[in-house]
């Protein structure tokens, strides 16, 4: 079943170009990345889906609930983590989560119980009774996740959830969200500009651009490398390049990085087109002939970033021509 379904959604503010123009899309189960440059219409889409905007054309639904008619029911079943550094003033971590749980319909006692559980889960056990104002950026992001989880929603909308976190905190956060989707059946819509994070956590992505749906893809479809290989080796660089040519392996122009990392004399990397039944064998044979040692050889995985820029670039070219 579609977690979020939108059909012919159009929303314009005044006379400006519409924020969303006839968008139809479905977000499936698991973690879905919602991508798009600024002004693509991601925020407007989320506001329509949550029933915060109702004067749109077309239909929008969450878990089969109509965004106009059942908006309060939708909000009971959705947890939303805003991007802004939102904080309930003057409350401790536990108080704020408990309070928001009550607003989502939990009784006070149940909400208090859930607040503790969720805060422990997101790793704030040491800061339960400290004022939210004293939390660091990373802790505030975790607090917002606990707030989004307190009423045990089926769907989580996370808006730029790891911004401002340091690498270790970000890794932990990605792991928490992955576990929620994998082990606890939560559906997650992850809206972000940080494409490598999305690639790690999401199973599918949807790309919006200038109010239109630009494309959608599954992350597993990215992994298929094709015949482009990334090779890193040590040794005589020129001899290796010659050997590649002798074996009919095409070095992609402009990809050779020699003397990589400055001090590492003799280390180099390149992208090579390798056809044939035994790509690794062919590469290693060429290297052996040249007296070079291959440190790394793998099919070049396509990055979400590349696909994204291709899609957006094509859209720009399209609008430029028209």
């Amino acid at each position: 079943m579609a977690v979020v379904a939108v059909s012919h959604l159009t929303k314009a503010y005044g006379r400006r170009a519409p924020a969303l123009a006839d968008v139809s899309l479905e977000l499936g189960e698991g973690v879905t990345g919602l991508l798009g440059p600024n002004g693509a219409g991601k925020s407007t889409l989320l506001q329509c889906v949550l029933g915060l905007l109702r004067d749109f054309r077309g239909t929008a639904s969450v878990l089969g609930l109509d965004a106009r008619r059942d908006r309060l029911e939708i909000r009971r079943r959705v947890g939303y983590m805003p991007e802004a550094d939102s904080l309930l003033p003057g409350m401790t971590g536990v108080t704020s989560v408990r309070y928001l749980g009550q607003l989502s319909g939990l009784s006070r006692r149940q909400a208090l119980r859930r607040a503790h559980e969720c805060l422990h889960y997101v790793g704030l056990s040491d800061a339960l009774y400290r004022p939210g104002e004293d939390y660091s950026t990373g802790m505030r992001q975790r607090l917002k996740l606990a707030q989004a989880l307190v009423h045990d929603p089926d769907v989580l909308f996370l808006d730029e959830p790891v911004s401002g976190m340091d690498p270790a905190a970000r890794d932990e956060f990605l792991a928490l969200v992955s576990a929620l989707a994998r082990d606890h059946g939560k559906h997650v819509v992850w809206s972000s500009h940080m494409l490598p994070d999305v690639q790690r956590v999401a199973t599918a992505v949807v790309v919006l651009h200038a109010g239109r749906l630009l494309g959608s893809l599954r992350i597993e479809d990215l992994a298929r490398g094709g015949d482009r290989w990334r090779v890193e080796a040590e040794g005589p660089e020129a001899a290796f390049v010659d050997a590649l040519a002798r074996h009919g392996l095409a070095l992609e122009a402009g990809t050779l990085e020699s003397g990589r990392d400055g001090a590492e004399q003799g280390r180099f990397a390149a992208t090579v087109r390798v056809a044939g039944p035994e790509p690794l064998g062919a590469l290693l044979r060429a290297a052996a002939e040249a007296g070079a040692r291959v440190r790394s050889a793998e099919p070049l995985a396509e990055r979400l970033e590349d696909v994204f820029h291709r899609l957006v670039g094509a859209a720009h070219a399209g609008t430029g021509a028209s």
Partner: peptide
């Protein structure tokens, strides 16, 4: 005096309105 002002300053309003609160 602080009731809505503090919510506005700490951007807490969205935390209310994405819940079943009109």
């Amino acid at each position: 005096a602080g009731s809505v002002a503090d919510d506005l300053r700490s951007r807490a309003l969205p935390l209310y309105l994405v819940r079943p609160v009109t």
